[in-house]
Write a protein that binds this DNA or RNA. Structure first.
Length: 509
RNA sequence: CGGGGCGUAGCGCAGCCCGGUUAGCGCGCCUGCUUCGGGAGCAGGAGGUCGAGAGUUCAAAUCUCUCCGCCCCGACCA
C-alpha cells in the first residue's frame, strides 16, 4: 500500500492534478496526514520520528509563540535559554522524574567521529577515543538544568519569585510518532517558576492553566476542559498536574497544554533554599507549564474538513487571499491594481492579505488550493466586480459567498473574520457536547467505547489500580478531574465502590 | 518491539506470479500558442543507480537471502 493517495480518487481519474485528501469518514488518520501535506505544513525527515516544519506550518507556530509570549510577559515572565544537553547525573536527582523520562532519553556518548574504511567504503563511526566521561542527555524537559541554576540564583526571599520561560526544542524517544502530535523532537515553551510559598506556586500553576484555556478557546477556537490529572497521569515529579483537554473530530481527547505544581520536589532534589524575612531557611516552591507544537495537530484536527486545512482567523498568518480574474493583459493590470490597493488599505486593520497573481493558473484552481491551505477568506475580483465596485467574499469554513462593495470591505472583512472565528468555536463546542455523555454502568461504558466513543463523565472511586484496570480493559483513560464537575457521591462505574464524584473519561491521543 | 501493508521519475501507480532489446502510464514540471467568474486545451520537451547490498542466471524491476526505510493497527507517551 502506498502511504499517500494523491492522484487517486474520482477527480484524479478525471485528470485533475491537485493533491487529493482522503475523506475523514474513510480513514481519519490518513486524512490528517493528507491535510498536513496538502497545506504544506510539514514533512517527514530522514530521521525517523522527526519532522520538517515547512513555512506554512511554522507560520502557525510563530503566531502561537507571539501570542503566548506576549501574554506571558504581561504576567511578568521573562525569557531565557538553557542548554540542550543535560549531564546524565542531573536526571537522576529527582526519583520520580528519572522514572518518568529514563525510557525515552537520547544520550550523547562521544564528541568526535572517525573515518573508517570497511569493504572499500568510507564511513564514519564514533571515535572510541572520544568517549565522554560523563554522558549527556538531550533534554526531554529542562527542570533539572534549570533548577541546578536556580540554586545559584536564589538565596533570599527577595530573589523570589523567579518567573522564567524558555522557547526550546526537546527530545523524547517515542516508539510511535505522528506529525505534530507526537514527534521525537518537538518545539515548545516551558515555563519554570520559583516561589516563596506553596500558595503562590499553586496560584501560578492555575493562572498559567487559565492562560492556556484562554489561548485554546479564544485564539484557536478550540474548546477545552480544564481539570486536574489523576495521580497516575501526573507529570513525573509533580505534586499536582493540571491539563486542558480538547476533543478531536474522531471523538478522541487530546491534552493540549499542561501546568504542574511541583511543590518542593525539585527544590529538595537540587537543594534550592531561601531565607525568609524572619531568617528561616526553607525550600522554594516550583511550577512548570508547557505548550508544544502538538497544539498544531490539535488545531488541524479540530477545525479542518475534507477539503483540507481550516484555520481560525486569529491564528492564520494570511487572513485573506485575493484571487484576481482576467482575460487579457489590460484586465489583469486593472484587477491586480485594485487587488493590491485593497490588500494595502486593509493591512493595518486586518493583517496580511495575499494577492495571488500567478498566471497560468486559472481562478478555480487557485480557489481549491487556498481552500486546502486553510486561508479563512477568499476575495474574488474580476472585471465584472471591478465595474460594480465590489469583490466576492467567500469564507473557507462554510463556503458562504457574497458580494461586498469596496467601500464596505473595511468593516465587512473584519466582521467576516470574527464570524468565522465564532462559527468555528461554536461548531467545535457543538461537536463536543453531542459527543459527551454521563455513563453510569460498566455495560454502557464498554458499549460506548466499543462504538463511537467520546467524552464520558462517570463516577470513579479514586483508586489508581481501578483506573489502570479500566485502561487495560478498554484503552480509555481519565483525562482529568474537571474543575467544574459533579462531585455528588455515587458508585464507581467500574468497581462499584463509593465514588469521589464524576470524572472525565475518553480515549486519547 | 509484535501483527499487517508497502518501497519503480517530484507525486500517484502499472509491470513482478510466468526473468528476455531502449522500464511504461496519469498528474506535476519546462517551452510555445490558445485560455482564464470553481480543479483549462493542444503541441513539443526534460526527468529513473526500479529502496540498499549480496546471490542464482547467458540475462534480474521480476527469483532467493540479508539489511534499510515508510504507512496502518497494538504495547509506551505531551
Amino acid at each position: 500500500m502506498p502511504h499517500h493517495r494523491f492522484g487517486e480518487g474520482p477527480r484524479a481519474e478525471e485528470g485533475f492534478g491537485m493533491a487529493e485528501i482522503t475523506k475523514r469518514s474513510d480513514d481519519y488518520s490518513r486524512w490528517y496526514q493528507d491535510v498536513i501535506q496538502a497545506a504544506e505544513l510539514a514533512e517527514n525527515s530522514p530521521v525517523r520520528g522527526c519532522m520538517v516544519i515547512r513555512p506554512n506550518g511554522y507560520a502557525i507556530w510563530e503566531n502561537i509563540q507571539r501570542t503566548l509570549d506576549d501574554r506571558f510577559k504581561e504576567l511578568g515572565h521573562v525569557n531565557a535559554y538553557f542548554p540542550l544537553l543535560i549531564p546524565k547525573s542531573f536526571l537522576a536527582k529527582e526519583a520520580e522524574h528519572v522514572e518518568g523520562f529514563a525510557k525515552e532519553c537520547a544520550i550523547v556518548t562521544h564528541h568526535r567521529l572517525k573515518q573508517v574504511t570497511v569493504n572499500g567504503k568510507t564511513t564514519v563511526v564514533p571515535d572510541p577515543e572520544s568517549k565522554l566521561e560523563e554522558e549527556y542527555v538531550i533534554r526531554p524537559t529542562s527542570e533539572t538544568v534549570i533548577w541546578d541554576q536556580y540554586r545559584k540564583w536564589i538565596q533570599s526571599y527577595r530573589d523570589l519569585p523567579i518567573l522564567i520561560n524558555q522557547w526550546a526544542n526537546v527530545m523524547r524517544w517515542e516508539m510511535r510518532t505522528r506529525m505534530f502530535l507526537r514527534t521525537t523532537e518537538f518545539l515548545w515553551q516551558e515555563g519554570h517558576t520559583a516561589h516563596a510559598t506553596a500558595e503562590e506556586g499553586r496560584a501560578e500553576t492555575l493562572q498559567m492553566l487559565e492562560v492556556y484555556r484562554w489561548f485554546a478557546e479564544d485564539i484557536l477556537a478550540m474548546p477545552v476542559v480544564c481539570g486536574a490529572k489523576t495521580a497516575n497521569e501526573r507529570f513525573a515529579g509533580a505534586v499536582e498536574t493540571y491539563s486542558i483537554e480538547a476533543m478531536m473530530q474522531d471523538r478522541k481527547a487530546l491534552q493540549a497544554g499542561t501546568s504542574h505544581d511541583l511543590g518542593q520536589n525539585f527544590a529538595k532534589a537540587f537543594d534550592v533554599t531561601y531565607q525568609d524575612a524572619e531568617g528561616k531557611v526553607e525550600h522554594v516552591w516550583a511550577t512548570s507549564w508547557g505548550m508544544s507544537t502538538r497544539i498544531i495537530g490539535a488545531l488541524i484536527m479540530t477545525h479542518s474538513d475534507d477539503n483540507g486545512l481550516v484555520l481560525p482567523p486569529r491564528i492564520a498568518r494570511t487572513k485573506a487571499v485575493i484571487v484576481p480574474i482576467w482575460k487579457n493583459d489590460e484586465e489583469m493590470a486593472a484587477v491586480c491594481a485594485a487587488a493590491d490597493r485593497i490588500a494595502a488599505d486593509l493591512k493595518a486593520s486586518v493583517g496580511l492579505i495575499h494577492v495571488d497573481k500567478r498566471d497560468k493558473m486559472r481562478p478555480g484552481w487557485k480557489y481549491a488550493e487556498w481552500e486546502q491551505k486553510g486561508v479563512p477568506v477568499r476575495l474574488e475580483l474580476g472585471p465584472r466586480d471591478l465595474a460594480e465596485g465590489q469583490v466576492m467574499m467567500a469564507a473557507r469554513h462554510d463556503r458562504a459567498k457574497n458580494p461586498v462593495k469596496f467601500a464596505d470591505l473595511g468593516t465587512a472583512l473584519p466582521a467576516e473574520l470574527e464570524r468565522i472565528q465564532a462559527d468555528l468555536f461554536a461548531a467545535a463546542v457543538k461537536r463536543r457536547e453531542e459527543a459527551t455523555v454521563n455513563v453510569d454502568t460498566w455495560d454502557e461504558f464498554v458499549k460506548l467505547y466499543e462504538g463511537e466513543g467520546g467524552f464520558a463523565h462517570c463516577h470513579w472511586c479514586g483508586d489508581g489500580d481501578c483506573e489502570k484496570a479500566i485502561q487495560e480493559k478498554t484503552k480509555v483513560t481519565i483525562r482529568n478531574l474537571p474543575f467544574e464537575r459533579d462531585e455528588t457521591v455515587g458508585t464507581c462505574v467500574h468497581c462499584g465502590e463509593k465514588s469521589i464524584g464524576r470524572v472525565l473519561f475518553a480515549q486519547s491521543y
